[in-house]
Design a protein around this nucleic acid. Structure first.
Length: 505
RNA sequence: GGUGACGUGACCGAGCGGCUAGGUAGAGGUCUGCAAAACCUCCUACGGCGGUUCGAAUCCGCCCGUCACCUCCA
């Protein structure tokens, strides 16, 4: 590989070679889902992108600690600071424990991520399991003079933070004055804040809140719950340190969520931007429009996999979805259409067929390798090396796939005419096939997704078994029986027909 | 209203000053009992109007259009 890995940093708005704080260790944090509803397709993009990122970092032999949180503390239903918490409302409606709601959606989310080929994170911290850490962080921010208690709640003091020269807004390029000018005054609960820009670190809970914890804030002993941005700061700090390497999330989290995270972290430790590199994946649209419930184009991950959604003509498999997402660069918006998904499905199959081809790239027996293989070797090495160019350029998986297709075309050519393998050295061929296999499987995380079901194939075999039997071709009959037995399957003849069972031997 | 991003061939989607990815679809061919796969060839585009430059999809300006954030949101 010629180029080092470069990543685009939202903080600096430019690409820079990636250098870990403490090589070979790399800390990566991705904002995970809020588990009060089922994940939609947009929720899958970040995890897929960061799965490729962490896989590639590991390929580069870094020791990665990848943290992806679960937010299960029941953020509010309303835009305003009042109202029920979302998990609590569902729990009440279903008459179950709030944690049952959170657990159910958490399990579903994780199943979906596994289906999409995402390796499990090294740590999956729950916000609800880190209330103490969050309270401690609030106390520290207060002690440092960047937060104040008001009616049992605690707010981050943005003006005080900025007065200390800390630049709230540096991530999202916001100017505090402009934010003030554009801020809405009609939000309720503003009277507790000194400035409209201040945000909650801790909220006092009323009886309508099901998810609440004993609160040290305010005069009387009460209960409360952590603010909307605090868990990521507290948990990333706990597991990755006050400053770590890479923090990611959707573009829509940049402001205010990540901006607030930086402020919270920096109010504790100074100086830090929480993460050195901030990465933001772009949004997914459906037929050119943002996914939203009101527009009627909201696609959950399950619906995509099952095809049960009005805007979808058919079901799309997890690997088709993954391929589709990787075919675009993560910082570009990507539009889901049936045509696009169908094209991705075919492209994915082509890549998989290439994987199956690799072991068959053998020089025919009795054929010798040419004396001078330098030209073909150089061509093949160039094709293989090109595959890393896109990856190193800010994880441009679209380019990587294009390069892999170029490499594949060459390999397919060899497969079509095996005698041409004599032009290339076994070493160069081995390198090229290893690159293809490693990048496809280990880095891009595309696994072979069986199309045919074993049971259907077995039915087909039994069909031929019956035909052979009807033709009294007992040699063929015995052959099929023996072959199936090798697979642990016994054929059962009966008067009503043919069936099979698992061999009990 | 403020901030930011983007408009690429039939569709998706890279590229971001000269060498003009890739996938899907389409056309022709090789191979083939038929077909599929594969390979070869073809279809060569950058919203509009100006400007900078020897040269622009790529830089600048204006216009049109789309999207996102500013409020929970991946």
């Amino acid at each position: 590989m010629s180029q080092p890995l470069s990543l685009y940093n939202t903080l600096t708005r430019q690409k820079a070679p990636f250098e870990p704080l403490n090589a070979p260790f790399v800390g990566v944090y991705l904002c995970g889902p809020t588990v009060y509803s089922e994940a939609h397709v947009g929720n899958a993009r970040g995890p897929v992108v960061f799965d490729v990122l962490t896989r590639y970092l590991r390929y580069l032999e870094y020791k990665v600690r990848y943290v992806r949180n679960i937010t299960d503390v029941g953020h509010l239903v309303d835009d305003a600071d009042e109202g029920e918490d979302k998990i609590g409302r569902i729990a009440r409606a279903r008459q179950v424990e709030p944690m049952e709601v959170a657990e159910g959606y958490t399990n579903l989310y994780q199943d979906h991520m596994v289906a999409l080929g995402c390796l499990p994170p090294d740590i999956t911290p729950r916000a609800s399991g880190h209330i103490i850490e969050q309270i401690e962080m609030v106390q520290q921010i207060m002690a440092n003079g960047f937060a104040y208690e008001s009616n049992g709640s605690v707010y981050f003091d943005v003006p005080a933070y900025n007065a200390a020269g800390r630049a709230y807004g540096k991530l999202s390029n916001r100017v505090v004055e402009e934010l003030l000018a554009g801020s809405r005054d009609n939000l309720t609960g503003q009277d507790e804040k000194r400035s409209p820009l201040d945000f909650a670190l801790w909220k006092r809970a009323d009886e309508r809140h099901l998810m609440r914890w004993p609160s040290p804030f305010g005069e009387a002993p009460g209960e409360g719950f952590p603010g909307w941005h605090l868990e990521c700061s507290a948990m990333s700090r706990k597991y990755l340190g006050a400053e770590f390497d890479i923090h990611g999330g959707g573009l829509d989290l940049m402001f205010p969520h990540h901006e607030c995270e930086i402020a919270q972290s920096q109010a504790c430790e100074h100086p830090t931007n929480e993460a050195r590199v901030w990465m933001h994946n772009n949004m997914i649209t459906v037929n050119g429009q943002k996914m939203s419930k009101s527009a009627g184009n909201f696609i959950t991950v399950s619906q995509l996999f099952s095809g049960e959604n009005e805007v979808l003509a058919q079901a799309y498999s997890p690997m088709t979805t993954r391929f589709f997402l990787l075919q675009a660069h993560y910082r570009s918006p990507v539009d889901i259409t049936d045509e696009g998904m169908q094209g991705a499905g075919k492209g994915y199959r082509k890549i998989m067929n290439g994987l199956r081809l690799l072991p068959k790239l053998q020089l025919p027996e009795g054929t010798g390798v040419a004396v001078d293989t330098s030209a073909a070797d150089a061509e093949l090495r160039k094709l293989a090396d090109d595959c890393f160019v896109g990856l190193n350029d800010d994880l441009n998986t679209a380019r990587t796939l294009a390069s892999l297709f170029n490499l594949l075309r060459k390999l397919n050519g060899y497969a079509a005419k095996p005698d041409t393998l004599a032009q290339v050295s076994p070493e160069a061929l081995a390198e090229a096939t290893a690159t293809y296999r490693t990048l496809v499987q280990d880095v891009l995380g595309l696994r072979d997704e069986p199309r045919a079901r074993a049971e259907d194939l077995l039915g087909l075999t039994l069909h031929f078994y019956q035909e052979a039997k009807a033709a009294k071709d007992y040699g063929k009959v015995d052959e099929i029986r023996a072959a199936l037995k090798q697979q642990g399957i016994v054929v059962k003849d009966s008067k009503t027909g043919v069936d099979w069972a698992y061999s009990e031997e």
